[in-house]
Design a protein around this nucleic acid. Structure first.
Lengths: 261, 261
DNA sequence: CGGGCTTTTGAGCCAAATCAAAAATAGTGG
DNA sequence: CCACTATTTTTGATTTGGCTCAAAAGCCCG
């Protein structure tokens, strides 16, 4: 995505300070973790290590005795089709568990690959299960994560099955915007960094890269979106959300696993 | 789906006896429930009541203080598009929890509607959370259910995003076949009952009903499938699976939440 | 400054949508 | 059990969104 006709100032700052500690606090809050559970998460995240782009954190069919948390950078879930294409199944952004499913399922049913330089914490599966076993709050938080993922995946199905290419693409940007905002990665001018190519986007919304290019041009020309290098800006959030028929309810933002206990 | 040119005998019997008790045992086994947990499930299921077709068990945006289990019959998850169409998000078959997500999430983010006459057990949310709180095995089983749902939803995304209409439709039949088999609802000739219309199918695979009709004819004419009233038969399972590029791994059949504990 | 990747554009084609109507089936009440 | 309706399935004709192929232009990086 290259700058074409809508440059904008870069003198904006993130709405939420985005230091590692702050991010961990945001995760812990969203999971309603307190006391020992919170300490456990903090300790686990301290051991994060840098990982280069295009590195696999999970491989379809393989087992894994570690569960990964992304503290910085982006990753993509995907599976390959017979003809060599790649279908993306989800984006992993800072603060997300990559493969919490590996705690209970014996084999990965999809691949996970970093899209950029990342900081990744790897938690031994047995440690995680042990901690969950000792703490009801933690177990519930993991269950909650799975439920949120379900909601996200259902929305993707809705997106793929019932909308035109334009709207599907716009919807992806709306979702990323909403999720990145919760971890302070959206600047005050509604812009954010994304390390994805048009081809990545095509593999996400189930169209060709040519089609993505043409629909992006459309979104640009109608003023719904702006692109500059790998930054995306949404000039009028309500307008884009209306166009994409995006309703953030499914993200269940603001709620957390203790909400109705 | 009407009988056209491939009638078949009806003198086949289900591979697994399908009494209610047997079904509950199958569920309990798949969740690795023992002792008190198992008893809890049995007790909860005893209170099942009949529900007519086209009845909503969950409504988007609404809260619910009950969680439902379907013991007989079929239901569909769906959301409505702005232009009044309906996008299906999943099928619920006997032995499935409908809305376990309602235990932790405050509002339904999609609708659930019965497709046929059903037997439905309704569990008060607080009872369920209480039971989960007292039993690590139960909590883990619920988490496990969510993880399985995730895998199912990812597969649907893969299906919608990367395949042609033919293959998508065939895939849906393959999945239903595999899932129904686990609860003894597939007869020995690989046939099973489905209460869905071609329009339901269209709303599932993201195409028009006209297109579904034409692709079903294709599947019929190539001998991949047979239809008679609301029964479906798969003459050669391997052939259909190959055509649909269906790999049942994602269903994680045979595994259960205690598998790697 | 050159090579590889990404984006952009054009042209032709095809799968699938839409619209419309007939045929078949299932459901209902007398 | 049959007649009558409503729903579902089937078919045809036409239109269109999106795909493929191919090539040019732009960008990034060592």
């Amino acid at each position: 995505m290259t700058l074409l006709d809508h440059p904008w100032s870069t003198s904006h700052v993130s709405r939420v300070p985005n230091t590692p500690d702050k991010l961990i606090a945001v995760i812990a809050d969203s999971l309603a973790l307190t006391g020992a559970d919170r300490a456990w998460l903090e300790e686990v995240c301290e051991a994060a290590v840098p990982v280069r782009p295009e590195v696999h954190l999970a491989i379809e069919g393989k087992s894994d005795d570690h569960v990964h948390i992304i503290l910085n950078g982006f990753a993509v879930r995907y599976r390959c089709t017979d003809d060599g294409r790649q279908q993306n199944l989800g984006f992993i952004i800072p603060g997300n568990f990559c493969d919490l499913h590996a705690a209970l399922l014996d084999r990965h049913d999809h691949n996970i690959k970093t899209s950029s330089n990342c900081m990744v914490a790897a938690v031994p599966r047995q440690d995680l299960l042990g901690a969950a076993s000792r703490s009801e709050g933690l177990m519930r938080a993991f269950w909650w994560c799975a439920l949120l993922n379900e909601a996200l995946l259902r929305e993707w199905i809705f997106n793929l099955g019932s909308k035109q290419a334009d709207e599907r693409i716009a919807h992806v940007f709306c979702e990323l915007h909403a999720r990145l905002e919760t971890v302070g990665l959206v600047q005050s001018d509604n812009s954010f960094h994304l390390p994805f190519t048009q081809e990545d986007l095509a593999n996400t919304v189930g169209t060709s890269n040519v089609q993505v290019n043409r629909r992006l041009r459309f979104l640009r020309e109608t003023g719904l979106m702006q692109f500059r290098q790998s930054r995306v800006r949404i000039p009028d959030l309500n307008k884009l959300r209306a166009y994409a028929r995006f309703d953030p309810t499914y993200l269940h933002l603001g709620a957390n696993p203790s909400h109705r206990s």
